[in-house]
Amino acid sequence: MKAIRVTDKALIWDDHQDLPAPAAGEVAIDVAWAGMNRADLMQRKGAYPPPPGASPILGLEVSGRISALGEGVSHFEVGDEVCALLTGGGYASSVVVPAEQVLPVPKGLNLEQAAALPEVYATAWMNMYMVAAIKPGDSVLVHAAASGVGTAVIQLGKAMGNPVFATAGSDEKLAFCRELGASGTWNRHNGSFADAVIEWGGADMILDPVGGDYIAEDQKTLKPEGRLILIGRMGGAEARFDTGVMLMKRQRIIGSTLRAQPVALKGEVMDALFETVWPKIEAGEIKPIIDRTWPVAQADEAMAYLESNESTGKVLLAVNP
């Protein structure tokens, strides 16, 4: 098979040893499209190593066609068009993945569109409705709202009855967030978002991929019993927070990652997406947001674009479309 090889200077599409046949409970997928995520940037820089036993190849989500079934897998057939959440290995011509992390392509979508779904909707769903356990009517503040995860949060919030306040780095991105359903927005270049979110009504939950100086401002906007879910550190690894505010408001600050979660939990997340989100996608209430695509051999150019923060939604790699 072929896969992306990381060198000091470039991402190179090159020959790679073939994967073993799928074990019991696994499926093999011929990859059509691979999604690109900020975790891939961090892994490339050595700041986010794959969990023990995971593929060292970049890539946390793909779409494609099932090429082989492991023992005990009965709900898929060879040739089925699917998308999958991975622990690694997506920038490749084939992957092997636990069947629990695989879903059929939603009706009405093609493989390109389906590749934009698994990682961002699994991340959004797990953190909103499992980790933070928000209920209908609870409000959400999301930073980097024009990202893949951010656009998923906005659409899920609108569909599930959770108002969303979105922050991003340009008025154009914020206009797009409002089109998706955000009811409040703030341009981060205009200073702190805290007063605007408080005026909007405050947040029951915050999904924050930034960290750093945002943490103290996040605390100001949280309602009593509010949950701050930290999923990244784009703003730096160190942060200050007010323990007095944390105690008086009974705030919870939670670090959360999806990649290292056990297969069983990922399966729960994927089941929830299939039962609740897939019907909304098929009904047109939720849609994949794709910014640009590149051939996988141009992964370097695609990653530079993602790192520039110019994208709105997902960046995809065409492997064998």
Rank of each mutant, 00 (worst) to 15 (best):
P22M: 04
D30K: 15
S74H: 13
A92D: 01
V27K: 07
G70M: 08
L58H: 07
K45H: 09
V105L: 14
A32R: 09
S55H: 12
G70H: 08
A24M: 03
Q113L: 09
P49N: 12
M36Q: 05
M42E: 14
D80W: 05
F76N: 04
S55N: 10
G25F: 11
K45S: 14
P106E: 14
G25C: 11
S63G: 06
V105K: 07
Q43A: 04
E81R: 07
L58Q: 09
L58G: 05
Y91N: 06
Y48E: 00
N110E: 15
S67E: 06
A28S: 13
L69C: 10
C83V: 00
A116Q: 11
G72M: 12
E26H: 12
G90L: 03
V95D: 10
V82T: 06
F76P: 07
R38L: 07
V73P: 11
E61S: 01
S94D: 15
V27R: 06
S63V: 09
G46T: 06
E112W: 10
L41N: 11
A114F: 12
L103C: 08
P50C: 03
G70F: 08
A116S: 15
Q113C: 12
G64K: 02
V62P: 01
A39D: 04
H75V: 08
A115I: 05
I57Y: 09
P56E: 09
G25A: 09
A28K: 03
A24C: 04
V62Y: 03
V78P: 15
G59N: 01
K45A: 14
V105Y: 10
P106V: 11
Q113S: 13
P106I: 13
L86E: 03
G59L: 04
G64S: 04
V95Q: 07
E100A: 09
G70Y: 05
L60V: 01
P56I: 10
S94L: 00
W33R: 02
L86Q: 02
A24K: 14
L117G: 13
G35C: 08
P104V: 08
G53N: 02
V95G: 03
S93R: 09
G46Y: 11
A116V: 14
L111Y: 07
V105Q: 10
N110M: 12
A34F: 09
V95L: 02
A68E: 13
L86K: 03
I29L: 03
A24N: 06
G59T: 07
R65P: 03
V82W: 05
G89W: 07
E61K: 00
V73D: 05
P56F: 11
P52Y: 02
D80N: 15
P49K: 15
E61L: 02
L41E: 05
S93K: 10
A54K: 12
P106A: 12
L111T: 15
V27F: 00
E61R: 00
G90A: 04
R65K: 15
P50F: 02
V73E: 03
S63L: 05
S93P: 06
G64Y: 07
N37S: 03
R65I: 00
V62Q: 05
Y91C: 08
A32K: 00
H75E: 14
G53E: 01
V62A: 01
V102Q: 13
S67G: 04
G70P: 10
E100M: 08
L117M: 13
G59D: 01
I29Y: 10
P50Q: 09
S55W: 13
G89A: 04
P104Y: 08
V105M: 12
A68G: 12
